[in-house]
């Protein structure tokens, strides 16, 4: 093989293509929060495309209060050993050592997550330094682009985790997709203004304006409790769903998990969604946003 013909990434690991590529493989799927190897098996059997290994689901983190940190590596490892699908784990915002620890364990994706208590009030993890890919939460387009610029290879809406209430996730997905559409109408000067407002390079804003989509995969997270919630987010432009407390805080997790997977695949098929929604038992109880004091809301964490 001549050297001129060799691709610059020949033999490389941890490239942008590989990081964003794994997220492409997750599309159309459901990533489920699990706290034990048994949960992880239930999720895999239900058709989850990945699991998020946690010590506590967000609803319990919310109930417990105090400082929420990276999970015990023992729990993460046992979940990695239990399933063959990709395993993700969460680090605190800005806590790059938790991220290094998770990378050393060999997790497949790291979620730098507002569900945990932030460790740095100024900087998020500089994610280009890692071989493992990162997913980050966002409430609006500027936040999503700042995370991508720092190296996030996948974006999810923040929603309001642990509430079983879809309203914030809807707000965030709409904010992101509407802002992307609005870029299409802007001239070069308008794009420059947006780049300044978003605090990201103009090239990134130009690319989003041209493609009409983020340069990475966009999932929904935060508040999905039913198959209809999952399909709603897909119809609003999500490319897949994270479901946290909604599954293992419900009456029949195995059936609900399977139903949410089917509704995510066939999100434009109301008959099928009706069918899989029948007799699922009680959904997680849920919280209205008004009942949560501002200081206890998670979505405002990160910037």
């Amino acid at each position: 093989m001549g050297s001129q013909q060799t691709h610059e990434n020949n033999g490389s690991t941890g490239t942008w293509t590989l990081k964003t590529g794994l997220a492409q493989m997750l599309k159309g799927g459901v990533i489920m929060d699990v706290v034990t190897p048994e949960h992880a098996k239930i999720a895999e059997d239900a058709g989850a495309c990945a699991v998020m290994a946690l010590e506590r689901v967000p609803a319990d983190i919310r109930a417990a209060g105090g400082v929420a940190r990276m999970s015990d590596p023992e729990i993460v490892q046992r979940i990695m050993d239990a399933v063959t699908i990709p395993v993700m784990a969460k680090c605190r915002i800005g806590h790059f050592v938790e991220a290094q620890v998770l990378e050393s364990l060999g997790v497949d994706y790291i979620d730098e997550s507002e569900v945990l208590t932030p460790a740095d009030e100024k900087y998020h993890v500089y994610k280009h330094d890692f071989k493992v890919p990162f997913v980050c939460g966002a409430r609006e387009l500027g936040e999503a682009l700042r995370r991508i610029h720092e190296g996030a290879a996948m974006i999810r809406s923040k929603g309001e985790a642990g509430t079983g209430n879809i309203v914030e996730a809807v707000r965030h997905i709409r904010a992101i997709t509407e802002s992307i559409r609005a870029l299409a109408d802007l001239d070069e000067r308008g794009l420059e203004t947006k780049a300044q407002e978003y605090r990201v390079p103009i090239e990134l804003v130009r690319q989003v304006a041209k493609d009409g989509k983020l340069p990475v995969v966009l999932f929904c997270a935060g508040g999905i409790a039913t198959p209809a919630d999952a399909a709603l987010m897909m119809q609003l432009g999500a490319e897949g769903n994270f479901v946290g407390s909604g599954i293992f805080k419900s009456a029949d997790p195995a059936r609900r998990a399977k139903a949410i997977v089917e509704a995510t695949t066939h999100f434009r098929d109301p008959k099928l969604i009706a069918e899989v929604s029948r007799g699922l038992g009680e959904a997680m109880r849920g919280l209205t946003l008004e009942s949560i004091p501002a200081a206890e809301r998670l979505a405002g964490r990160g910037w």
Binding site: M1, Q5, T6, H7, N9, N10, G11, S12, T13, G14, T15, T17, L18, G21, L22, T84, P86, E103, G106, V107, D108, Y109, K131, V132, P133
Partner: peptide, 13 residues
């Protein structure tokens, strides 16, 4: 998953 986990994913000519 014969080549390992995500950190072992690679590109090759």
């Amino acid at each position: 998953n014969a080549f390992g986990r995500q950190v072992d994913s690679f590109e090759a000519d």
